[in-house]
């Protein structure tokens, strides 16, 4: 069954007392549908978490309206909302004897009896979910003893047993190592695309957002929220514009930011012969050292040329061979002298 979250002219921020408080974002108009993975992408301080907490009902909108399938958020009581939205937050809790199972179990509270008793079906759902996310063996482990990645999966399991069409996650892959990040993002995109959940996650990691989001919500303090598919946003220069900072520019080809120019010694151009992983990583090393790298297919010509052939790097200056070295460290050493 398809469900839609509709946001109309929403302003988010913090109230302070009876004053208007701090407005972080205003005029937000967009939608989130089940089966969709939306990444809220923006630099720190853009108001991503505030938006997520407003949509989850933790914070009051400063103005505007949020509709869950046509029903205004403010008309939904917490019981009803707990059947619609589950969350994964950045809050730390570490009660001494809380096990991973205890944490996941709490996600089932909206379905449990007044005293918190669970039916056999609830317990088997908890077990299945934990197994599916690969944390089945951690059930009796204390939550505070788990690694960041394991904790995050346990928290996602907690949200999943709540069995809601909408899942909101605040920075779910911050502080997680890169394989763990991929694992979690694969889990989340599976939930959206195979189980039809509507997933909304904030991240300040552009790579994650560009790679996994069906739709990006670009945010920046003082700029309107933009939505669209990541590829269009990149090509229209929106991603570059929203993260822009003096001294940096957005490399559309690589989809990441780079420093404008490194004025180190040797602003030389190096031609690197295309082909193989070696040429890619050689370019990476050369760029770090401040060289301008030009990938080429052609034979050695004017200037410095490097090619990888027969398991070694061959260097040429003005088409004349000047040396042959084994690793990239060797190439860098040669270029220095």
């Amino acid at each position: 069954m398809e469900m839609t979250l509709k946001i109309e002219d929403l302003a988010t921020g913090y109230r302070s007392g009876k004053n208007a408080g701090v407005v972080l974002q205003q005029g937000i108009c967009t939608t989130l549908k089940t089966g969709q993975m939306v990444c809220v992408l923006g630099p720190n301080g853009a108001g991503k978490s505030t938006l997520l907490k407003t949509l989850a009902g933790f914070l009051q909108p400063l103005s505007g309206e949020v509709y869950f399938d046509g029903k205004p958020l403010k008309m939904l009581d917490l019981k009803k909302l707990s059947r619609l939205v589950s969350v994964v937050l950045t809050d730390r809790f570490s009660d001494l004897y809380l096990t991973a199972f205890d944490v996941v179990r709490m996600g089932r509270f909206p379905h449990a009896s007044f005293f918190g008793r669970m039916k056999a079906g609830d317990l088997s759902l908890i077990n299945q979910t934990m197994d599916k996310l690969g944390v089945g063996s951690l059930k009796e482990k204390l939550f505070y003893n788990l690694s960041d990645g394991e904790r995050q999966k346990v928290l996602i399991a907690r949200a999943l047993v709540q069995d809601t069409p909408f899942l909101f996650l605040d920075e779910p892959v911050a502080f997680i190592d890169s394989p763990g990040r991929i694992e979690i993002m694969e889990i989340l995109s599976g939930l959206a695309h195979r189980q039809g959940k509507a997933i909304l996650m904030t991240t300040h990691d552009m790579e994650t957002g560009l790679r996994y989001a069906d739709v990006l919500w670009l945010m920046h303090r003082g700029k309107p929220l933009l939505d669209g598919i990541p590829e269009d946003m990149v090509l229209q220069g929106k991603v570059g514009e929203y993260f822009q900072r003096p001294g940096l520019h957005f490399d559309v080809e690589k989809g990441r930011f780079r420093a404008n120019s490194k004025s180190l010694q040797g602003p030389e151009t190096v031609f690197v012969k295309n082909g193989g992983h070696e040429s890619i990583w050689l370019a990476n090393a050369l760029e770090r050292k401040g060289f301008t790298v030009v990938q080429t297919d052609g034979p050695p010509g004017q200037g410095v040329f490097v090619e990888y052939k027969n398991e070694s790097f061959r260097l040429y200056r003005d088409a004349k061979p000047v040396g042959e070295v084994q690793g990239i460290a060797g190439v860098l050493g040669k270029l220095k002298s």
């Binding site: 933790f58 809050d91 809790f93 944490v103 509270f109 909206p110």
Partner: peptide, 12 residues
């Protein structure tokens, strides 16, 4: 035990 926001999210 999980904090106020998690408590809210499960209906308390």
């Amino acid at each position: 035990l999980l904090g106020e926001e998690y408590a809210r999210s499960i209906g308390f």
